[in-house]
Design a protein around this nucleic acid. Structure first.
Lengths: 349, 349
DNA sequence: TCTGTTTTTGACAACGTGAGACAATCATGG
DNA sequence: CCATGATTGTCTCACGTTGTCAAAAACAGA
């Protein structure tokens, strides 16, 4: 492998001058610099990171511990955002897929220690509390938080997401929303229920009795369990004038399930009832017919924010909540376009 | 940061003896070893990779260039497989998300050179030919191949995948399959058509006129374009006795689209027509109702194989085709369970 | 106790880079 | 020719680890 010594030999100059050129020391004659740079380019020389790490005592490496994240498609954007941010800061991100509590975590920690990582981002697969053993290096929690609040954390602002979505729903004239919520054990569940309830109350609508827990569990390594096939038919079995005019789903894959249930009931999304959701999980959201109007979770921005916080640790740990944005598609048109509204007909009759 | 020197100082021994203990050199007195190991554990010492890389002139690092892979959920398993294999071999994998032709590729190459990566895995987002500039280190192509054949490559065996799926279809008694193929520009398209055609011919079935190109393009950064809403109604508009009894889709998201089109036609998957597909893309495949029977692409195994080949380069470059496996769900039941077969009724009538 | 052998330990150098101290060389202007 | 400043070179050390080789210690046999 090429070294500065080799470059110096070829350029018939000294090691020190080569070092000056590499490190952009201005005290070098333009012609000499050009000659050396030409040789550097010709040989494709890159200074050895190992040697630099040794010399400078800085690794420029940030670890990214992805706790089961890689098994979940939605959170790739966490990785992408972090990767891009690290890149922009001239840092190197080292990714590890781990499972909390298994040896993989210890192995990853050992590797990161061996590389003298300067900080670590710990990412969870969904917004949840985690308790981790203390860390020797600065740590940022991503999509999770320390119940004690002692760790800097980046999470989605589930309250804002829900409130924003509710505003969009109400703006379009809907007045009988049903919220098909996640399992109540999930952090997002309570936050979203609050956001939806508050946003509704601000507009004079009471959500009491309109929130239903439809995701009943999270199988290990599997899909969540939905009971939309039990709840939705019940909700929709009353007259078109009093049944829900919009179903707000806790996640896109639940919305997909709801589409199928509605199809069984011969109810068309966008014609007989509107649907809105959370996640903007592609390709599902845009492939559903009609396309699913949904709140996009700010995964990419969260990944960025976590990496930036890892690189420049904040003075005091804090929980940063990032807002999501509404993605409009066909499933949530203005209320007056619903067939049930236009005609008053009951397609079940 | 703790060093061996520090350990030696505390253990009142020499640097070299500490080094021997760290490297499990048997030529160390048991008592000395125990004393040193106690201090190592107490201080949580990990040998510096940077120094080891310097000393040994080996980085133990394998680069993984993911060309737009991170934007596609399906290929996370490529990354997971590679990561796990690297791990098992005591290697460190360095992941880069790049886009071919953009500066990101050069930056990633520079970084890998700086870290003196021993080999590189180059992964594409779908099975395709790629031509890359020559590389200074061994390179393995993953989910892509060099048209000149000069590079070791790991790809899915699309011919086998299709032939296996066709066998499963025929085993269940179907005799009027329609294959809704990918865009013909995609490599997999031709391979699968051949696999399906050959497997059918082996069982006395001629596929002429039964293969339709339904995926018409691949938008940049977007979803493919389907024309299932044009083709499927046409195919299904003839009598139940002569129309297709099974629709084999080129990918799961197309299958999802087909489900919706069939629903529009008031045809139920599994009752009026069977569906089979390629990808086993979760959560779609298991959330569709009924669940989608589909050929799983061996992404995890491909990632593993690529990493292993990068770590132990084969004597001569070769294109390795890995088989997929059939995942059975409700969309492809035995033919005799179809309602059209049992009753002969035409639900369109 | 002495000699010879084996076991255990230690001194030193080197990997590639970067920095400081300082000397040597060169070009330019007066 | 000298003064000045710009440029380049020499030399040294340090980062943490490990291979080479030699020294020291422990042990066995006489």
């Amino acid at each position: 492998m090429t070294t500065q010594r080799e470059i110096a030999r070829r350029a018939k100059t000294s090691l020190k001058t080569v070092s000056r050129v590499i490190n952009r020391d201005p005290l070098v004659n333009a012609k000499t610099r050009a000659r050396i740079e030409a040789i550097v380019a010709e040989l494709g020389y890159e200074p050895s990171q190992a040697a630099r790490m040794m010399r400078s005592q800085r690794s420029n490496i940030i670890g990214f511990l992805a706790d089961q994240v890689a098994t979940s498609a939605s959170s790739i954007d966490l990785v992408r955002g972090a990767q891009d941010a690290a890149w922009e800061c001239g840092k190197q991100m080292m990714l590890f897929n781990i499972e909390r509590g298994t040896p993989s975590q210890d192995l990853a920690d050992a590797q990161l220690a061996a590389f003298r990582a300067e900080a670590v981002v710990y990412a969870a697969v969904y917004h949840q509390p985690v308790e981790l053993p203390p860390s020797a290096v600065p740590r940022v929690l991503l999509n999770c938080f320390d119940p004690g609040g002692g760790q800097h954390a980046i999470v989605p602002d589930d309250y804002q997401l829900a409130a924003t979505l509710m505003d969009e729903v109400l703006d379009r004239g809907y007045r009988r929303p049903a919220f098909l919520n996640l399992n109540r054990a999930i952090v997002a569940s309570g936050l979203r229920a609050a956001g939806i309830t508050d946003a509704a109350r601000n507009r004079g609508l009471d959500m009491t009795g309109r929130i239903h827990e439809v995701v009943v569990g999270r199988e290990h390594h599997g899909q969540p369990q939905f009971i939309a096939d039990r709840i939705v038919p019940e909700l929709m079995s009353v007259s078109p004038e009093s049944r829900p005019d919009v179903l707000i789903c806790g996640q896109d894959i639940l919305a997909m399930d709801v589409y199928f249930v509605l199809s069984e009931l011969r109810l068309k999304v966008g014609q007989h009832v509107a649907v809105a959701s959370f996640d903007n999980r592609e390709p599902i959201a845009s492939l559903l017919k009609p396309g699913l109007s949904t709140m996009e979770l700010p995964y990419y921005e969260m990944g960025r924010a976590a990496m930036l916080a890892a690189i420049n640790p904040p003075p005091a740990p804090e929980t940063v909540r990032l807002p999501g944005k509404f993605i409009e598609r066909g499933s949530l048109q203005p209320f007056h376009t619903l067939a049930t509204h236009r005609t008053g007909s009951n397609p079940n009759a």
